[in-house]
């Protein structure tokens, strides 16, 4: 199979997932504002959990769990994006 541009792009993106454990764990803008102004207590816990906060229940190694969760999400989204595009592309294009 001939390599296309997007094979390379996808490889780089999957590599980005390996960097995910290095991401800053500081609160984001909204979390910071909520903490500073005392409305963070209003957060409701999610009704169900699959991979909450990019972690995987049963994998104690946080670094590994984050990388795996990232890879799962990335592959899932490539599939959704690609699939949606295949489904929706203009069929009358010549």
């Amino acid at each position: 199979m001939k390599l296309k541009w997007w094979h390379g792009a996808l490889a780089i993106i999957l590599f980005l997932c390996i960097l995910a454990p290095l991401a800053s764990s500081l609160p984001d803008g909204l979390e910071r504002v909520a903490e500073d102004h005392g409305f963070d207590s209003k957060i409701h816990d999610p009704t169900f959990r699959i991979f909450p906060d990019y972690s995987i229940t049963g994998i104690d190694n946080e670094v590994l769990a984050t990388i795996l969760a990232g890879l799962i999400g990335t592959i899932l989204l490539f599939g959704i994006g690609f699939g949606l595009a295949k489904l929706l592309k203009n069929k009358h294009e010549t």
């Binding site: 997007w6 792009a9 996808l10 993106i13 989204l77 490539f78 959704i80 690609f82 699939g83 595009a85």
Partner: peptide, 13 residues
């Protein structure tokens, strides 16, 4: 088609 898949994956990562 591949661009849409790549962008969705990249933005998530």
């Amino acid at each position: 088609v591949p661009m849409m898949g790549v962008l969705a994956a990249f933005i998530f990562a």
